[in-house]
Design a protein around this nucleic acid. Structure first.
Lengths: 208, 208
DNA sequence: CCATCGGATAGCCGATCGGATGATGCCGGG
DNA sequence: CCCGGCATCATCCGATCGGCTATCCGATGG
């Protein structure tokens, strides 16, 4: 009784690699691959896998978190194990919030990955050490936590947008944007936009 | 007479994937794998491959560009084909400057990758379309290089300092700081301090 | 049931920024 | 020897920001 796995990743090389690796085991099998949301939805609905291996960065279109949420909303949904390269606080929280059962990094050795897939199939939660550390740090510290909306503002901020432009982008008023910014300054311990961008990148609240 | 390839990548999954893919061809073969500089050096010296497939983001330690430069400094060096996920201007320039023969992205389909490896072995230069576009854009315009002084301003900027504070820190007038900032905006293609910080970090002009 | 929190909104006002324009001095390459 | 790039400084002005104070609402949770 092998564990049936579907791969969702926009990189052909990675899909082929995972597929090859998993073929080498005798209790795991790849029953489908997808590179985007639409494909993932139909494949999963058709083959009903036990576990979906999900890359978070799917290039254009909806990200892995959104895809995860969609898959989890199906009847008798598959468990989703996130397998990605980066692990910012925001990425992790978005993914887990979307219903992912685990979060591994692509630098994990193959045996660890296999163990993670099996554990996920059994219903366990698997986290890469670095991810676990991030979650612990967050849980342990009464520290200021940037909210989802604030992260969105930070992302636009890093693109150099002005308050008016951010407001338009987020469908809110300038006043709201200013409000978010004020909170961000307080939480990050800065008092300028430039400082906020640097602090946010350093703390890996946003990436790039 | 098959092309002998060494893989350098810190992701086991990717190494295994590439290895599996390449095994499926009859004119390419993987003769070694490495996940860091030290291993890459000794493997390459020992097996003398035709082509090294190089990931630029090797996690901790020296990056792929540094490794590339080291390998190219060997006697009768292998050709190096960069295979990575992201392609910032800085990444590309560093890699090519380090002596890479080509630059492909990991979202390339397998046949394209194989063709790239063969072309590299023949001494040709292969570039992913997106990379080529970046280089053309860069070549078409005289490369804006930030000066020493401008870097200093960028560093203070990332700390959230205002013009007056930067001026004090650099022992110049506010007018001079503003002048530097204007030049920075032009060179980085932004028009705000926040955008400048993000662009500078992305292009690794300053480090977090 | 009421406190708290995230989010959205508003107005005010002084401080700061960003763009435009122009000028000076130094240095190195053609 | 002159030109261009770099660094320096100055002034003007409209646009934007950042801090402050306040209100409102829905969800969450003692």
């Amino acid at each position: 009784m092998s564990v049936r796995v579907v791969l969702v990743d926009d990189h052909p090389v990675v899909r082929a690699g995972l597929s090859a690796l998993i073929s080498g085991t005798d209790d795991l099998e790849v029953v489908g691959e997808a590179r985007d949301l639409a494909t993932a939805r139909s494949i999963v609905a058709a083959v009903r896998p036990d576990v979906v291996l999900m890359d978070l960065d799917l290039g254009d279109g909806p990200g892995g978190a959104a895809v995860t949420a969609e898959l989890r909303a199906l009847d008798d949904p598959p468990r989703v194990l996130v397998l990605t390269t980066y692990a910012t606080e925001a990425d992790i929280l978005r993914a887990l919030d979307a219903g992912a059962s685990g979060y591994l990094l692509k630098d994990a050795p193959a045996p660890e990955l296999f163990a993670g897939i099996r554990a996920t199939a059994r219903g366990e939660t698997v986290l890469a050490p670095a991810v676990a550390a991030t979650l612990v740090r967050r849980a342990a510290s009464p520290g200021p936590v940037v909210t989802e909306r604030e992260v969105a503002v930070l992302e636009l901020l890093a693109q150099g947008l002005g308050n008016r432009e951010m407001a338009k982008e987020l469908f809110v008023s300038e006043a709201t944007v200013k409000s978010h910014l004020s909170h961000i300054y307080t939480k990050l311990g800065v008092d300028t936009r430039a400082g906020a961008v640097a602090a946010a990148i350093e703390r890996r609240i946003i990436r790039r």
